[in-house]
Every structure is written in C-alpha cells, then in structure tokens.
Amino acid sequence: MLHLTECPRDAMQGWPTFIPTADKISYLNALLRVGFDTLDFGSFVSPKAIPQLADTTEVLAGLDVSQSKTQLLAIVANLRGAETAAQHPQIRFIGFPLSVSETFQQRNTNKSIVQALDDVARMQELCARTGQEQVVYLSMGFGNPYGDAWGPAVLGEFTQKLDVLGVGIVALSDTIGASTPATIAPAFRELTAAYPHIRFGAHLHTTPTTWREKIQAAYDAGCHHFDGALGGYGGCPMAADELTGNMPTERLLDFAAEVGAAPELNREALKEAMAWNQRIFAGH
C-alpha cells in the first residue's frame, strides 16, 4: 500500500495572496476527513520569510483531529521553531529541510550544513523528550543550479550522519523538479538496502508530463511513502522564481490504484477537499 503525506503547507507557502485563516482551517479539516497517513499542515518559521504561514498556531487551534486517523506534521527551519512545535502534542512529526547543497542550506535557513546538522541533533533530542518524531528532508537531493555536489553517494553520506543521530524518517526531496528515473531509482535502491531500519519517503516536484515515470522509479526501487499536494500546487519559494509543482496527489492515487496499492480513503471527503482546493487556488 502507498502511504501518503498530503502537503497543503507546501501548496500554500508561496501563494501570492494571503489565504484567510478561516479558509485554511476549513480546507485542512476537510483533508483530515479524507484519511491520509500524514498532513503537512503548516510551519513554525519566521513570518518575514514565509508570511503566508504566519497564522500556523491559530490554524492549528482550529483543526479537529479527534476523529481523524491522520497525523499532523509541521515544518521548522531551526531549533526555535522545533521548540514551538513541540509545545503542541497533537503534532506527531516535526520536519526539517536539510540540504545537500551548501548554497541552498544558506539560502533556505541562513545556516551552513554543519550548523544545520547541529540543529538536527538538538531536535532529535527534543523529540526524544516529547515523544514526537523528526522527519529530515534531504533537499536538492536530485540536483541543484549552484554546482554543488549531489547524487546517491552524497545522499548516502548525509543519511549515514542522520542514522548516527537516530533519525528514523528521511525524505529524499527534489526541490526544483530536476529528478529523472535515472537519478531517482539508484538513490532509493541503494539507501533502502543500506538502511532498512530507516523509513524513506519521496518528496518529488514534477511537470504535468513527468509524474508517472518519477513515481514508478521510486516505487520500483522500494519507496512506498510519497508526498503530494492536491492539484499539484506549490513548491519551495526559496528555490527559484519559476517553479515546477508538487507531485499531484490525484496522480499518486491513480498510480496506487494501477499497481494494487491504493490506500483506504474516504472518497466523499476527498471530493469535498478537492472543492476547497479549487476554491482556494484555482479561484485566484
């Protein structure tokens, strides 16, 4: 079965007009009724960096998680953000973007990779105290425009460091949509074999014509955890001016049905969530 993380946070974070807090809450509550494994709902970062998500605490207060099997994930950019997220026990996962590109790490979090790894270590200790789990996204994992090193060997070096720290969930992330089957397959094949105790996920960005080959390559190489966003909206606002979109959740569901790995979802709730998705994004 495919395990899906729905990422409205990634769809919303770079949206040019502020999405009203009430609309965010309604949309996220609709998604919670669908039955995804995880909901990447918001981030605790500087409102100067991501003004669209300045209301994450208020949004969280409006979410009805009592009747949902879906677990919440919040993204942070530093230890301070993680400490804020840790104050909310309804958040199960704390996600941190660790770039294999030194240039992008500085651009994304204003820290070096060495400093970021120190944050990862401290956040891992924090999660051990609170009972939450850290998810580390290895961003720029399939290429970058800066000339920095990347590839399966680099991803392996970073994973080894994360393994030493006790990180149990790692998402290989295609921040700019540069991945191809030729780069996706070896990365997942080698890492899933070398670190069977780590849960690897795929956070892939794509164009409308390349989604299937990317999903297929990751799936065939042993990855069964995927991030998506309904409609394929969004991307990383720190990465580039022109963005490829997130992996559309609809396409992930199509693929899962084709290979007999469809998750059990509330289809009526999914229709309601899609209606909210179109109201928020397609109407602007």
Rank of each mutant, 00 (worst) to 15 (best):
N246W: 01
A116S: 14
F188Y: 10
E258S: 14
G141L: 08
A149C: 07
G232N: 07
L2C: 13
N29R: 04
A116W: 11
D10T: 15
A193K: 13
L73Q: 13
A82L: 01
A221N: 07
H225I: 03
P181T: 05
L32C: 11
I19W: 08
A178F: 10
A77G: 14
A202F: 08
E6D: 12
G228D: 03
R189D: 13
A86V: 07
T206M: 10
P208C: 00
G168T: 15
I25G: 10
A187R: 14
L252F: 09
K24E: 03
F142Q: 11
G234S: 05
Q71A: 06
D119E: 11
N144H: 06
L126E: 03
Q90T: 13
G231V: 02
D118I: 14
L39R: 09
E258K: 12
Y233K: 03
E242S: 09
L60D: 04
H284S: 12
P8W: 11
Q134A: 11
A49V: 13
S68C: 00
L155P: 03
T183P: 05
D163N: 12
A30N: 13
V65M: 08
G231W: 09
D37F: 02
M140L: 13
L79E: 08
E213M: 06
L63Q: 01
T183I: 08
M140K: 12
Y137M: 04
G231Q: 04
A229V: 14
A82I: 03
F281Y: 15
F36I: 07
G143T: 13
C127M: 08
L138I: 08
A256D: 01
L31Y: 01
Q13A: 07
R129W: 05
E190M: 09
A82G: 10
A261Y: 06
G62K: 02
I280W: 06
A256K: 07
K69T: 11
A194K: 15
D174V: 07
A54K: 04
N277E: 05
A240Q: 05
L126G: 01
G201H: 12
M247Y: 05
A86C: 06
L53N: 01
A257Y: 04
Q87I: 03
Y137Q: 04
P237H: 09
I169V: 14
D148E: 10
M12E: 12
S99G: 04
V164T: 14
L53W: 03
F255Q: 00
G143P: 01
M123H: 05
N246K: 02
S43R: 05
T57Q: 14
T249R: 15
T21V: 15
I91Y: 01
R80K: 15
C236Q: 11
G177F: 02
Y195M: 00
L165N: 01
D174R: 06
N78Y: 07
I113A: 12
A11F: 02
V154K: 12
Q134E: 09
T192V: 13
L165R: 05
Q134R: 11
L155T: 09
A239P: 00
A261W: 03
H224S: 06
A269F: 07
I50P: 00
W211A: 15
I280T: 00
M247F: 03
R251M: 12
Y27V: 10
E268H: 08
D241N: 11
S112Y: 08
A149T: 13
G222F: 01
A153H: 02
D220V: 10
I280F: 03
E190P: 00
F104G: 06
T103M: 13
F158W: 13
Q67T: 15
